[in-house]
Design a protein around this nucleic acid. Structure first.
Lengths: 219, 219
DNA sequence: TTTAAATTTCATAAATTTAAGATATTATAT
DNA sequence: ATATAATATCTTAAATTTATGAAATTTAAA
């Protein structure tokens, strides 16, 4: 899942990207509208975050052009109270709007909402994608065949990236709270899942005496 | 559920408190950063609402200090357009942000969200952080790999900063009350833990004939 | 029903962590 | 300064925990 962050302030770009990358998005940056258009011409994005006020080419003009070359959801950033811009923006087909200063968490939530609208219900972390509708997992675009338990297990991990999951938590999530599963059983499933995860094989870390954790670090 | 409202304007404090109390929160007030720190030192809060711009000590400085002495979620208030403060703030570990003028309802909603999600996840002392959710310890942002006993031991220390822990207390906390551990065994664990604590290596003080103490003085 | 696939269990291997003894070092009191 | 007691460190063996391959069982499909 790739997003493009367009803002003339590097600090803002960095903060947005940091948060987004933590959620498993791959981020590109552009510092003005012209650069943004160049990026859009050569890359495919799932969402664009765009500041309205920028030098060279302002956001609204850029959006107009982008909407002509690609069908991609756009979330706008703007200073508070720029009512006129806002209305203009929706006319141009902006999908959502966030006023500065904004909470990164809120922004991430909106990105998720917007991409869900266009892509259906996807869980994406790095190059892994779970499409719940299709009940299908892909890594780098290639379909990975998983059994049902493996699918649930992976989903659990991707919904809890970087969070340590105790064996009990895993059992509860997959089999229900009253199921009595042997610890070795979980290990076995972990093993099978790992064996199918290719380059993400080592992303499932063992935490001794606790359980497992799916780690994702932006590159 | 107790919250602390920090703002130099009495009117704002009163409004926030009134709404919060309507929702069942108990409210304390402080009119500047210094008073806020005093409050935090002697009380336990579930959330702090803090204005950024204040006389005597500004909000960001206060937050820095508060985060060192207590693990409490903080929501910031700020005038519009204080971009830099905002980004700084998230680096300091601010949990959410509301710009003035704000709707009391929105603020309450954010308090609820914040108290829900940050209850007992992080233990922070100086530059050491234990993230229980991630089951991860960081010092100055770098992950420190600890074994399970070392993890428990450190947690015990950080939960009892500046308090002398007898060997018995340590044994009881880590192995349970009926375990008979050799004194040398504890020394060994202390040694291993120290060796991983970097600049905090000497924060674990030996108290002869008694046990150990993790000392921390804010700078 | 038969067959194949998926799940669970089991046994063993491999890896890591822990405990405790021996020895060295340090602190304290005389 | 020296003796003594307490703690630190090193080493190694034991214990614990996880990984893995294979067998047994269950489930689902043909």
């Amino acid at each position: 899942m790739r997003i493009l962050v367009v803002d003339d302030e590097e600090l803002i770009r960095d903060v947005v990207c940091e948060y987004a990358e933590n959620e498993g998005y791959k981020c590109d940056q552009a510092e003005d509208g012209i650069k943004a258009i160049e990026k859009v011409e050569t890359n495919k994005y799932d969402c664009i975050i765009m500041d309205i006020m920028m030098p060279n080419m302002d956001g609204l003009t850029a959006i107009k052009e982008i909407k002509e070359i690609a069908n991609v959801p756009i979330i706008c950033l703007s200073a508070r109270g720029e009512e006129f811009d806002k209305l203009q923006g929706f006319k141009l087909g902006i999908d959502d709007y966030v006023t500065k200063p904004f909470s990164p968490k809120e922004l991430i939530a909106r990105i998720k909402a917007v991409t869900k609208r266009t892509n259906g219900d996807l869980i994406t972390v790095g190059d892994i994608t779970i499409d719940e509708l299709k009940h299908e997992v892909t890594i780098d675009g290639d379909v990975v065949e998983l059994t049902h338990t493996q699918f649930c297990l992976l989903k659990l991990f991707l919904q809890n990236v970087n969070i340590a999951l105790s064996r009990n938590a895993i059992i509860e999530a997959i089999w229900g709270y009253d199921y009595e599963a042997d610890d070795r059983t979980i290990d076995a499933h972990i093993k099978l899942l790992r064996s199918k995860l290719g380059k993400y094989r080592n992303s499932i870390k063992t935490i001794r005496k606790v359980g497992y954790k799916f780690v994702y670090e932006k590159k």
